[in-house]
Amino acid sequence: MQATDISQAILDIIASIAPDEDLSDVKPSVRLRDQLDLDSMDFLDIVMELRKRYGVEVPEEDYPKLATLDSCVEYLTPLMAGK
């Protein structure tokens, strides 16, 4: 997957978790939590959706690496190569 696809994949997951959030203007370098109303329950859902949709396992100690869209792309690129 390309960087833009990964970023879109994350946004798609957030859109299905939080259908009422406006995702048209998410800034890639700003913490997702600071621009969207996401809590730890929502992050658990992001992790579980990654597993369900792409077979990617994110260990608990790596959750902080999902903080921004940019960091998601950086962290997930090797894990999602070929998916």
Binding site: S16, I17, D20, D37, D39, M41, D42, D45
Partner: peptide, 20 residues
Amino acid sequence: PKNARGAPLTKLLRQLRIPW
């Protein structure tokens, strides 16, 4: 109200993926 940040109702609908 719709999208009220941190409200139990918002959290719950989200967890169930049901729109407000």
